[in-house]
Design a protein around this nucleic acid. Sequence first.
DNA 1: CTAGACAAACAGAACGTTCGTTCTGTATCT
DNA 2: AGATACAGAACGAACGTTCTGTTTGTCTAG
Lengths: 214, 214
Amino acid sequence: MNKPDTASDRPEPPTASRKEQQAIVARDRIVRAVIDCLDEHGYAETSINRIQEHAGISRGALTHHFPSKEELMVVTAERLLQPTLVPPRKGSRHFDTAEQRISAVEADIVWMWERLVDTREGRALLEILVATRTDVALKGRISETFVRWNRAINDSLAANYLLHGLAEDEQRELWTMCRVFLRGLNTQSQFEPDHHARSALVRSFARMIATRFV
Amino acid sequence: MNKPDTASDRPEPPTASRKEQQAIVARDRIVRAVIDCLDEHGYAETSINRIQEHAGISRGALTHHFPSKEELMVVTAERLLQPTLVPPRKGSRHFDTAEQRISAVEADIVWMWERLVDTREGRALLEILVATRTDVALKGRISETFVRWNRAINDSLAANYLLHGLAEDEQRELWTMCRVFLRGLNTQSQFEPDHHARSALVRSFARMIATRFV
DNA sequence: CTAGACAAACAGAACGTTCGTTCTGTATCT
DNA sequence: AGATACAGAACGAACGTTCTGTTTGTCTAG
């Protein structure tokens, strides 16, 4: 119990013995299965049985790596928040004209939608988010992670755009609006089944937000 | 099975016999219990047992009125979409100045958040929406209802604001953005637990949207 | 270098609980 | 009388957890 903190998910910190690597691979397979199941069947129907079958792993192996379902969801949530959630910088971020800056922001918002939100991972995260709202045990385990992530992502995004004309608070607010909107759009498919219509909505929204970046 | 279509939820169409009223009251109690359970415990934990206990009704009575859980969710979803989801008209909707119009739209968006989305009913609807995404049986029963509601609500909102300077398509798009944003905000509490911060975000968003109503 | 103790990885049976549904029976209104 | 409202027991299936084995690397004493 004197290990660093949580179990390591990254391939090799110092060295990884064969047994450790084996465990890492298994844990990875399981977490991926959880993400797939959440996306395909939703939180309510993501049972241990289903995860086990989808991961192609025995019941014993699953319970060995994750003693409880709660543990499974906590680790999955952390995994889903792990990737860099900031659009990649393409060249310099110093823009000469306002129109250049607007286009860049617009493209980044569309990128967020296509690469982060409207994906297996994005939908899986939504399932966990909604479930966490009412599951007090789960909330106690990961709510702090969510709050910290929220602060970190706002800082990263603000740092990504060097604007002197717009207060940092306002920038953070605009990016928060983006995330909220895109998350809401993940549930809009019930009302608007046409995928193109939703994409068009993203573009309109992106343009509206982008023009606020003076 | 030759009844109109679905069971009636409205109090009295022509006359209501004592037995009919009794049934209506029971059904209403049950649907309210479902809404409360969805809000408090989420979709996954809204079991028949819990609903029955919360409604203060026997198991037999529950299964008598709603033979299956799916039926229960369908009726609840229809109930949640039933109320007028358009802000009440306050006086005339003909505005002299642009600033008046902006203020009116802004106030209406805040009204939607406070009275429709950030409520028991709003959260319950979100639970059903998310569950419906992956539950094919449920989807088959209510997806058409969602689509029709979406069209109807856009028409109502557009009709509520007599604008000649803005194309109707653009108005519908703006209102859709509002609904998507507010729905997404219902899941934002995990990232931003401070209720005041979220309210402030609504006001900022409302102002941004309102200024688009030229 | 290797024998062997030990812990970790894995397999699967068994646990009690809860799920949603079905069934039989009783009271009440039409 | 007959249908409807209600009550509650009983059902098998599925849930998440706990348990007992078996295999397989790892580490150390000799």
